[in-house]
Structure formats: structure tokens, C-alpha cells
Design a protein around this nucleic acid. Structure first.
Length: 256
DNA sequence: ATGGTTGCTTAGCAA
């Protein structure tokens, strides 16, 4: 089973590239983030022609997440399903081929003095509560997405440039560790313990041209799925050429 | 280095 996570930074701007990724990698499931469109605008018909079902949690202009799958998705749920007053579309879950798949777009956090930063920390705490309430560490589960967190300095090309930022701050790394402690494994880390492989390069400061990269995308899996890990890579070529997303797809392979 | 670039929406926000 192949699962991909990719922050497309607008489905509208990236549809041709998305179709290319599906054709090139043939994932069983692909988790998308930053759709930047309402559900009714989502090109579900075009993707169906490419062989994929769509489970969509859209929002006009900002955010938005989806799960595309070859097999029909089951038990689709949207949002963190808690009591918070939250209009941002950042989580969708579905059963795909016996695996509970979740696509998450963790808040970026702006800067550490902003209200966005406290929203990020609260959202991560709510995600932890969501796992406690809705998921089971003993069953196959993959939490896939843009976590807007580098797990470690070895996931940052120039850690000194990013220290104390919202992507590297010890408080979000702590929140990430608490998700892991619930019963998850950073599947990409298992395959590449040495680090030095990145999934996001800032459009600003010509990040890609300088390989000023960070790995803020990931696939976190429960033990029964971790035992099936076969390989992992980032499709760095997808960040090249005309009109790329600022993220590259991160790809995990599991035995069936 | 308080800049830089991209997308959505149309001057400003978010990343």
C-alpha cells in the first residue's frame, strides 16, 4: 500500500501537477492540504476519471484538506469533532483499504508572539485529544499531513536560521512528541534516521534554489502499520519547474 | 536579513 501526503497550496493552481503525481506514483491514498477552495469547486469528476475517489473538507480561500483513494473511502469524518468554535477546515479522516487515514493541516502559527501561535498550540492539543477519543493505537492508522513542525534539527538544512521559529520551537516539538507518545511512529524517520531530507522550501528567500529546506510534512503511523513500512522518499523533482507548490510530495510504502 | 514569492482576491492576508 502506498500513501502520499502533499500540501498542494491550491488545488486550482496545481491540478495538472496533481494529476501527474497520481499517474507517476499511483498511490492507494493521497492526503492533500491547502486546497484553498470550497468543496463544490473541487474537481472531483476530473479526479474520478483519473481513477480516484475524493473525500473533501473544503473552505473558501484558506486551508482545506482531502483524501483521494483508489478504493472507496469509508466512514468519512470532518474536523476535530470537539466543542471548540473553529471554522478552519484542517482535518478529514476516512477508512481506506483497512487503514484509518487522516489528512491534517496543522496551523502554521505565524510568529511566536501572535494569536496564531496560541491557536497552533491549542490545535495540537486538540489533535491529541482527538486521537484519545477517536482512534486506537492498536489498529492500523496513518496521520498524514503538513504538521508545520520539524521533528528534529536534522530535519532542517540550516537550523540556526530557523531556531525559535514556529516550525522549530521546542513547544511544538514537544507537542509532536506527545502525539508520538500516544502511540505513533514517524514512518519517514524510520526509513531515514539520518535526516537531511526535506519536504518544504520557502518561496521567499529562494529557499529551494539554496536548498534551505525543512521537513515539516510527515506520516505518523500506529504500531501495526509501522511493522509494514517498506520504504519512504520525497519527490523532490515535483518542487522543480514551472509553478510548483512550496511543498514536495512525501511518499510511504507499506506491505499489504 | 523584518526581506523575499506565491495564491486568492482585488489591497491585504496568509504562508
Amino acid at each position: 500500500m502506498r500513501i502520499i501526503t502533499w500540501n498542494v497550496n491550491s488545488v486550482r493552481a496545481r491540478l495538472d501537477r496533481l494529476l501527474g503525481v497520481l499517474e507517476r506514483h499511483e498511490p492507494d491514498a493521497i492526503c492533500l492540504q491547502e486546497l484553498k477552495m470550497a468543496e463544490e469547486e473541487f474537481p472531483a469528476l476530473r479526479l474520478e476519471q483519473a481513477g480516484y475517489h475524493s473525500a473533501i473538507f473544503g473552505q473558501k480561500t484558506y486551508n482545506g484538506v482531502a483524501i483521494l483513494s483508489k478504493a472507496p473511502p469509508g466512514n468519512v469524518t470532518r474536523s476535530l469533532e470537539d466543542s471548540a468554535d473553529d471554522s478552519q477546515a484542517r482535518l478529514i479522516a476516512a477508512d481506506v483499504a483497512g487503514v484509518r487515514v487522516i489528512s491534517v493541516y496543522v496551523p502554521n502559527g505565524g510568529d511566536v508572539t501572535s494569536e496564531k501561535w496560541s491557536y497552533k498550540l491549542e490545535w495540537l492539543s486538540r489533535l491529541h485529544e482527538y486521537l484519545e477519543a477517536k482512534a486506537d493505537p492498536k489498529k492500523p492508522l496513518a496521520v498524514c499531513g503538513d504538521f508545520n513542525i520539524t521533528p528534529d534539527d536534522k530535519d532542517v538544512k540550516h537550523p540556526e536560521l530557523w531556531a525559535e521559529t514556529v516550525l522549530c520551537h521546542r513547544e511544538v516539538r514537544g507537542a509532536f512528541d506527545r502525539l508520538i507518545d500516544w502511540g505513533l511512529v514517524d514512518a519517514f524517520r524510520v526509513v531515514h534516521p539520518e535526516g537531511g531530507i526535506y519536504s518544504w522550501w520557502d518561496y521567499r528567500r529562494l529557499g529551494f534554489q539554496k536548498n534551505n529546506g525543512l521537513r515539516i510534512d510527515g506520516i505518523l503511523v500506529t504500531k501495526p502499520l509501522a511493522e509494514r513500512i517498506q520504504g519512504a522518499f520525497v519527490d523532490r523533482d515535483e518542487r522543480k519547474g514551472s509553478k510548483p507548490s512550496d511543498h514536495a510530495p512525501l511518499i510511504l510504502d507499506f506491505s499489504d
